[in-house]
Nucleic acid binder design. Structure first.
Lengths: 162, 162
DNA sequence: GAAAAATAATTGCCCAGGCAGTAACATCCT
DNA sequence: AGGATGTTACTGCCTGGGCAATTATTTTTC
């Protein structure tokens, strides 16, 4: 070790939570990308595929609404997924603006492996958490999102059940 | 049904956590950017300035280590901060590779307002949280980060402290 | 029924982060 | 000493998201 680095006490009161959240999310995403690398997929592509498989959405706009994602970026993600043969675009006949999205047979076949990879990453990050703790964490995050979405709602959120 | 809950998808909800985390962080960041917009600063620039003001780091490499950030991106952020007259670069004489970073008088003068803006956003998102809940949330995030950083450490993390 | 507004998908442009390289310098090793 | 190695800051290049049009279509409104 050439230069001994001093270890400054990281006293962060205010932004600590934001910072930690960013780190945790980065770690989650990095792990997911690492696991998905051998499938040639990014975390975002995986998420899209998962939503499609679950039937949560079947058009690009729908997907964007559910995932709070940019429509332009979504188009490009779908381009890649289609190019990889995992998703097929199919123009709707009744409303010729919309394009239905369908998982191909190959895409569906890969899905279990992808889901397993995602679960692995999450399990790793939640090692040592009890189910109650996971639920609590989820409720905290939900409340924060709610607070950010509807700012000024000053009801004590102690009973906050989404 | 013999209720053989052998190994169903027990952690299926886990992905929800990742999703919620992303949403919460996005909301936090969007709020911060909105508050900082009138200062002409991004959330990242603010974070860097804050670290410098606290004396947590005084070189670019140091900052990157503390903030887990890319060195190239850091150079460019510092370019902007310097161009805005908030930070000054000063070559070290002993080790001519390093460039010390100093907050200018103007930068330090703005800091209180910036910190207040950051605190506002965080307070808004944590409305209705007790101090204990905030601490719990922080500990959860810390444990997740730890799990991601040192994967495979299979000691029950129940006693995990920061 | 035609103009106006709304919606879906797409594209171009910009910005910012990650990565790989580069040049200057410092340190280590033998 | 002198070469290998590491460090610091910086610079292109690539990727990917966000935003603002653009195009094609539907729905609403008058």
């Amino acid at each position: 070790m050439p230069a001994p680095r001093r270890a400054p006490p990281p006293r962060e009161q205010g932004l600590g939570v934001g910072h930690l959240m960013g780190r945790a999310r980065t770690s989650l995403l990095a792990g997911l990308d690492a696991q998905l690398e051998r499938f040639g997929l990014s975390g975002m592509q995986f998420a899209v595929l998962k939503h499609l498989a679950e039937g949560a959405a079947d058009t690009a706009a729908d997907l964007c609404r559910h995932m709070h994602y940019d429509t332009g970026a979504m188009t490009r993600i779908l381009d890649r997924l289609e190019h990889q043969g995992l998703v097929r675009r199919e123009r709707c006949r009744e409303d010729r603006r919309v394009v239905f999205l369908r998982i191909t047979r190959g895409g569906r076949a890969q899905l279990p492996r992808l889901l397993a990879a995602g679960a692995r990453v999450l399990e790793a990050h939640l090692a040592g958490f009890s189910q109650a703790e996971i639920d609590t964490l989820r409720s905290y995050l939900g409340r924060m999102i709610d607070n950010g979405t509807h700012p000024g709602d000053n009801h004590t959120a102690t009973g906050g059940k989404s």
